[in-house]
Nucleic acid binder design. Structure first.
Lengths: 171, 171
DNA sequence: GACGATACGGAACGCACGCCCCGGTTGGCA
DNA sequence: TGCCAACCGGGGCGTGCGTTCCGTATCGTC
């Protein structure tokens, strides 16, 4: 690969990181190109589609977070809650976190699997209500993460969800 | 107003009701026109903008729901929870419910006020955690209502939120 | 230093959508 | 029944966006 090509690829990735984080997947690709100081054509020389660029930006970060699901914890509930906390923390600052769940199907599956594992153990330990499925949790978290971008207090919103998860029965 | 005009207006409203409920605000206006069996121009003869049509369709329904906030209940918590339950019930079937919060600012304000009143009373009665604001609740509910359209189990999701609201402290 | 391959930039295309305009049509009153 | 105003339909305009194309510039090699 030519030197300038590598440099431009990096500039595009850098611009995409900033803008996807700030505005989510919705940001126009031309804006990313402008910020990187290149033309839209150059972006497409390095990434076949806007989705591919988005994936290149988010994949590593999200995968790392998913792997953190297997970190040791004192009990299943703590493990699950810590993971959800990390998700909220990330999403509160970077807007692309919640979009990643929607845009990349495989990524959603990985998250589903990771959350499912944590959830099941917490439920078997009797620490989390048993009527929740992994699908429910992924969907609920996605909704909550989006709420964080509209001015909701992260601690309060997450606090409500976590507290709700460990209730055994409805009011 | 001419007879055929009134008839068309009603056909447009009917089509809009169905399509907004099924697909939300995002549905193209031309699709509504097609379903009503008229041209797009006819829609604009009766409603100055797409938003106005949306408002005409949702306003009454949402206002009625907001007024139901002052229904009598045995205690503040029950009143609040019943209201949230009605919101979830409606949103689970009609996709325009959650969009209405976003699209029409005045409507969001009304909802904010109604929820704020119910919330404050429940908090003063010590039945709901006090760190939640009305803004938090509107935002959280919007996120949750959207989650309902993605396959989340309505009872479970609402159950988590309600349970979370009445917890006094975090885990 | 010249040449070929590689990469660049931005103009242009296709598409979707909200919204407007106008020639033709229809309804209701005299 | 005839006439005019009201109304209709759909083609068209402007815009924004993802994507592609191509003439030009640049890199790296011989």
């Amino acid at each position: 690969m030519r030197a300038d090509a590598a440099r431009n690829r990096e500039k595009v990735l850098e611009a995409a990181r900033e803008l996807f984080a700030a505005q989510g997947f919705e940001v126009p690709l031309d804006e990313i190109a402008a910020r990187a100081g290149v033309g839209p054509g150059t972006v497409y020389r390095h990434f076949p589609t806007k989705q591919a660029l988005f994936q290149a930006v988010t994949e590593a970060r999200v995968s790392a977070m998913i792997e953190s699901a297997s970190l040791p914890a004192e009990d299943p509930k703590t493990a699950l809650f810590a993971f959800l906390g990390r998700m909220a923390e990330e999403a509160a600052v970077k807007r692309d976190m919640s979009d990643a769940i929607t845009v990349t199907p495989e990524l959603r599956k990985s998250l589903h699997a990771a959350l499912g594992g944590l959830l099941r153990k917490a439920q078997e330990a009797g620490q989390v209500r048993t009527d929740v499925t992994a699908t429910d949790l992924v969907i609920l978290m996605k909704g909550m993460l989006q709420s964080l971008h509209e001015g909701g207090n992260p601690e309060v919103l997450l606090g409500i969800v976590l507290a709700g998860l460990q209730s055994s029965r409805k009011p």
